[in-house]
């Protein structure tokens, strides 16, 4: 029960934090290096930036915030999944609607 906790508050270890830091640095350096060196296809760069960002968010959640699917943490995780859905609706929905509005208003045409 070394990792047992008060509900909702998981504890980490030095090893876990160090791995979290290493993964974060790698996932930060990759997109920065790609954009700063240039010379890559724009679509590929965009894809790598997005993938690294998503991966690093997961690294932060797992290694620093100790999120998991144990019974102590399940409500944190469930609420986070719900918020991801809401955030996706807000962000993607806004971009989608506003693009269509721009198109219908013939702005920039």
């Amino acid at each position: 029960m070394a990792t047992s906790t008060h509900g909702g508050a998981a504890h980490g270890s030095v090893k876990e934090y160090v791995w979290g830091l290493v993964f974060s640095i790698v996932l930060t350096v990759i997109p920065f290096a790609m954009v700063m060196n240039g010379g890559f296809d724009n679509g590929l760069t965009l894809l790598i930036i997005l993938l690294c960002a998503i991966a690093q968010v997961f690294v932060q959640l797992v290694f620093f915030l100790h999120m998991n699917t144990s019974s102590e943490q399940i409500w944190n995780t469930v609420s986070a999944v719900f918020i991801v859905l809401i955030v996706a609706i807000v962000v993607l929905g806004s971009i989608w609607i506003m693009n269509h509005l721009n198109h219908n208003m013939l702005m920039g045409h």
Binding site: N76, S79, I86
Partner: peptide
């Protein structure tokens, strides 16, 4: 376990802050 309740409550606040940043 009030600590767990507090932390879950604070987590919910952080999730609401996510919506602020999403907008």
């Amino acid at each position: 376990d009030y600590t767990g309740d507090t932390l879950l409550g604070f987590w919910i606040y952080i999730m609401s802050d996510c919506i602020l940043f999403a907008s």
